[in-house]
Design a protein around this nucleic acid. Sequence first.
DNA 1: TACACGTGGTC
DNA 2: TGACCAAGTGT
Length: 352
Amino acid sequence: MKQTKIENFNKDLLNWYDLNKKLLPWRMTLEPYKIWISEIMSQQTQVETVIPYYKRFIDKYPTLRDLAEADDAELLKLWEGLGYYSRVRNLKSGAQQVMNEFGGKFPTQINEIRSIKGIGPYSAASISSISFNAPEPAIDGNLFRVTSRLFEISDDISKSSSRKIFDEKLRVIISQDRPGDFNQALMDVGATICHPKSPKCDVCPLKDYCQSFQTGNQENFPVKSKKIKQKQLYYQAFAIKLGDKYLMVKRPSAGLLADMWTFPLVEVEENAEVTLPSELRNQIVKFEEIGEISHIFSHLKWHVRLIVCQLEDVITKDGLMIHNQAWLSEKDLKTRALAGPQIKLFKLLKNN
DNA sequence: TACACGTGGTC
DNA sequence: TGACCAAGTGT
């Protein structure tokens, strides 16, 4: 684009943004700490979902120091239901990193910001542009889509090598005066107008600049190859109650649903006979299968059959203690993060 | 580079 | 119902 066209592009884009921007709680501030939290929460997550989590998070941890000193279990509980739980783990370790390496002051240079755990190229650029006015394109899914349509870029956005192509194109046109608003404006255009399917080109502020609109090829962009099928996994879950407490298991501290609580789970073949956990086999006098839930992850699908067990009358809790297990009442569970499938299992149990 | 990593919404 | 998508990053 010629220089005058670039100026007009920014004028049209930013005028549109000033009139149509989404009012979001993190758009009331430029504090890097708060922008950081909002960016991490927003990764692969719809804005409407994020809003209540963001408010609770800032209420509970108003400063970076509060986050650096946060209790792990409380943090995870606050994140419960948002998904991608390593994000909150990285957030805390990132906060500690800022305390240690940057004297508690959020770094201002993009390469320093990029070095913080959990901050990748997108988030680093977004924070730099919003909080520090750096002309860095923050390329998320929206910008990939909008930019690919603007310039008819056919590089596969699933490949990490394609980012450079988009970055170079955007670097030329990004507003030098309002780079943060430029990024957010393109995101809003992507989210509200330039949809993946049936984009609303008639009301788009960028239609005069959009190559794919002129050729009618909007829906052919972006080019995206990746699609993986979910693997099917089968489990049996055991509801074992003693008084008002359930036997619960804390998952390992790495991997899927790390540190979250579930009923004891046994992975089985599809349609397998009920297989009581070996540690409990002697104490269980009766069991009954009451139903099944399924839960879809990005890369897996769990099929979980729920089996309600009766213990021997004389059993003591101590007799059943195993590593990383605990007897927890409903009240105890209010302070523990529950895995997604576990929420469904409780509902199934209650409805039975 | 390819895959692990959650959840909820849409068509 | 299933496939795809939503403000991606770590390994």
